[in-house]
Design a protein around this nucleic acid. Structure first.
Lengths: 190, 190
DNA sequence: ACAGACATGTAAAGTGTTACATGATTCA
DNA sequence: TGAATCATGTAACACTTTACATGTCTGT
């Protein structure tokens, strides 16, 4: 149940409502873990029930009622114990790679266009990560212990995207060399 | 339902039983998609029911009874149509990255050791992929259209593992530089 | 005789996605 | 007044993992 641990980490950084957490999962926390608000609200309730979180209601301040969660001692303990466990080595899971593998049983030209689409999408994501890095970590050498871990994760994102783009470019090049996978000629509009 | 498409791709390459497919998901098909035999048997039954697959029983040949599945025309059509659809751009999902991010709320020394463990696991996987590449694709320039796609996927695996290892090394280096994350001194056995 | 590979399945629990549902506040 | 954002939730469905269950064949 890694979502639970992602929530523990995020609340250890700063107390938050379910809504806040959902926003964080759209941002930096979401580089390597995603969650919808539906999942989050349910798990928050469960974790409050099990005593790992405590909620404080902020009602009547003008805005709609917020339930702000923070870690209890039990929650902090659970988080600490989790960091001591070895992480199972993950295999990536990519529908795109499956499609590459099956390209000859379908429409190779369409798959080639899909490779270009993927490359563009990952270029955009890389640009975003690089901008975040420049904005939040202009001097990585000088980072203190507290700010180092999020930077390390961002570096992972940058490496992942860079590698993905290079893979797409390599595939396009190899497909271009192969006469059975002709480059689609595009209609130039005058 | 990407597992369905992974099965369609694999059966398009060669007809197989559920057991065979489970073996393939342990091997090259599994570089980017995993599935257990439990999942496979259930989905095969469902796909036979929906007319995308046809099964042939091979009983009494001495070995226990095998049900060999192959694509029907409807299955081939479904596969073809799927290759024409753009693939949704995936975000990676990594419990390990979450743990990095939370390292300061737990045991940083244990997480550092976990980084080393991950690096070793990915080094081993990279070595395996490189051996596969050398064995099956000694001359990538000369690959024909039919054998190019699995090679492209293997290249993706090699890139992914290489990037992961480099990320681990970068993290270890940055952690070593930081006095708040001391390198654990190991007891040398004389 | 026993271990290990071959071979196929069911059931239950856990996790994740999609659809549905509601209501307040803020800004144009 | 209407759209966007803030804010929380339920329900149904899809997918994955883990546990249970059974029986054959091959080699030692």
């Amino acid at each position: 149940m890694a979502l639970k641990h992602a929530i523990l980490v995020s609340l250890a950084e700063k107390a938050a409502s379910g809504y806040d957490l959902a926003r964080r999962f759209d941002k930096s926390l979401g580089f390597f873990w995603q969650a919808s608000h539906q999942q989050i609200y349910q798990l928050l309730a469960k974790m409050e029930n099990s005593g790992e979180l405590a909620a404080e209601l902020q009602a009547g301040t003008g805005k709609p009622g917020r339930k702000v969660y923070r870690l209890t001692d039990a929650g902090r303990r659970a988080l600490h114990e989790w960091t001591r466990e070895p992480t199972p080595t993950e295999q990536p899971r990519s529908e795109f790679a499956v499609k590459i593998r099956g390209m000859n049983f379908g429409d190779p030209t369409a798959v080639r266009l899909d490779i270009e689409r993927q490359r563009e999408a990952h270029r955009a994501r890389l640009a975003y990560y690089l901008a975040e890095a420049a904005r939040n970590y202009p001097d990585p050498e000088a980072l203190d212990a507290a700010r180092l871990p999020p930077y390390l994760v961002l570096r992972g994102g940058i490496r992942t995207e860079t590698g993905y783009i290079a893979w797409c470019e390599e595939m396009l090049e190899l497909l271009d060399r192969d006469p059975a996978h002709p480059t689609p000629t595009r209609q130039e509009k005058p």
